[in-house]
Design a protein around this nucleic acid. Sequence first.
DNA 1: ATCACTAATTAAAACGTTTTGAATTTTGAA
DNA 2: TTCAAAATTCAAAACGTTTTAATTAGTGAT
Lengths: 349, 349
Amino acid sequence: MATLKDIGAELGLSAATVSRALNGFPEVNIKTRDKVRETAERLGYRPNRVAQRLVTGRSGMVGMIIKIRADMSADQTFFEMLTGLTAALGARDVDLVLAVDQDDDPVLPYRKLMERDILDGFILNAPVPDDPRVAFLREKGIPFVMHGQTAPDVDYACYGIDNAAVSEDAVKLLASLGHKRIALLNGQLRYAYAVDRRRGFRDAVDAEGLVVPDAFVAANAETEMDAYKTALSMLSGRDGARPTAMICASTLIAAGVIRAAKDRGLRVPDDLSVMAHDDALPLMRAVSFDPALTVTRAPLRDACVPLANLLIDLVGGAPAEQKIDRAELIVRASTGPVPKEEQDPWPLT
Amino acid sequence: MATLKDIGAELGLSAATVSRALNGFPEVNIKTRDKVRETAERLGYRPNRVAQRLVTGRSGMVGMIIKIRADMSADQTFFEMLTGLTAALGARDVDLVLAVDQDDDPVLPYRKLMERDILDGFILNAPVPDDPRVAFLREKGIPFVMHGQTAPDVDYACYGIDNAAVSEDAVKLLASLGHKRIALLNGQLRYAYAVDRRRGFRDAVDAEGLVVPDAFVAANAETEMDAYKTALSMLSGRDGARPTAMICASTLIAAGVIRAAKDRGLRVPDDLSVMAHDDALPLMRAVSFDPALTVTRAPLRDACVPLANLLIDLVGGAPAEQKIDRAELIVRASTGPVPKEEQDPWPLT
DNA sequence: ATCACTAATTAAAACGTTTTGAATTTTGAA
DNA sequence: TTCAAAATTCAAAACGTTTTAATTAGTGAT
């Protein structure tokens, strides 16, 4: 393997100049810079990352802890994050070290990984309100970036989408189509995103002058089967007039909802409008739904780039930055005007 | 962070002696060794892994490529491997770098990871016959260890179980219970393990003087739903007298089979004996089945320890070793004697 | 010519460990 | 005592990079 010294010897230069030339420092003569780069190319030079890391004092590795839940619904989402993160981190020569969390204590795996290893920082996901991991890492002074955020205003580095706005956009669209009875099939409320979505939903519903009984705001939907059952129940009319529109936490949930609608003999969107938030998982494509699904869209994989960059910059000394994007609203075929005969709102309780 | 020099300064020793003391070299005085160790402990010394790696010329990282299949059945198995491997590698201070394979070319991700990174070696899984990854890595001289093997006799490092014996043990047990009609619900034959299981099955069946028509040797079972459908079909009697025993590729498959038996009104084990190979996935526990499942058992997580050690030793210059264990046969409640009225074998074709 | 200043390059130190070869101390026998 | 051998320890080199401080060469103005 060629080293800086080899390249220097080839050209009668010192390793220092070669290093600077390759790293694009301004004080090196442009002619020597080009010669150096050409020679490096020719010798197939690749910097020794371990040596770089030794001198810079950073390990070039960041950690991520995967929590395996008993219901095991991590799968798809996890692979998507893994794909995106390894690519985004790799583009800046950083490696991802994974560990699996099987304990009850949410901070223990971070502590263990930190003392066994030399990690520059962590990527956290699935924030919960008052996340204990945040308190721990902050106290230890360990850099981290959160995918999402534990509360609307935080001062640690994070990237995510505005989950209140996700609900708001959905409600506004449906209200503009005349819907008065809009249900929400939310994720579990122990996660911050679900809390935000519910808040956005409630606020937007209020702003439209509508009412949604608690029975039509579900928060137990993790699997398609959960969603199917919940939707069946909501559409039965048992808890009040059936909704004319349903907002789903994910495309997986929407799949269950659509199946339930079919089994109840309801057409989408003629009898029921369905929309969902879309993480753009490759095996659950919203455009492939029948009918194609109206969504708020924010590809999970895209989120990995800002996450990686935020963390790497943070490790490099940059200030902690919060970046919140707004999901894109894409109207497709699963939403339509409210049926003429179903325009009555739910009564005030 | 305390360094070797700090410890040396504290005791009036050189860094060299401290290094040797901590690494247990025989030429260091036992009294100084203890003093050094005590001081290291007191100062909270942890060796700088990057510096170690620079001088030893190894990166201390091994890679693993995860193939995401379109049917996405990797999930559980993958998490189990990840858990076991990070633990087993971590015990020897080696990190696992993951990458995701989304391409058609099976060797491309290895090539890419190799040129972007400095990896000491790879862990391969899910071998297929004539695996192109083996050819590539061998040609490049990159150390690797295979979980399983591409063929019965290979000369690269590998660890796995004897899959022919898995089938053999199952057939022998069932034959000893008087079963004459034994079906196999195998994994996909593009994987080497499924080929081995089928061979072992055929050989054992022959040795017992039995016959199994092709219709009762399935190789399409990946999901529980697949298994359910296949089992329903086999138990229908459409392709010949229904089997009195079924050997399943995994506990997941067995779950589908048992459900199918129930739906056909067959009792396990009174009307149908069911057994499976058990990777000991925590969310699919054979003992929790109703009835508790008779299995050949080889915990996936246990395999990670020899895999990690084999690879690390290989990187350290040890010869490539092949290690094949035999799965444990555990007889539980899902197997029983053949029903009196179902003792006829399948006819010779 | 001299000086000051800029541009370009280099030598050397640093990162923290392992390892080589040499130096010192201790031990045991004569 | 003295000497050789064995047991310890040490100084220095090495790994390959980045960075600091110093040096050389080049430029233009006086």
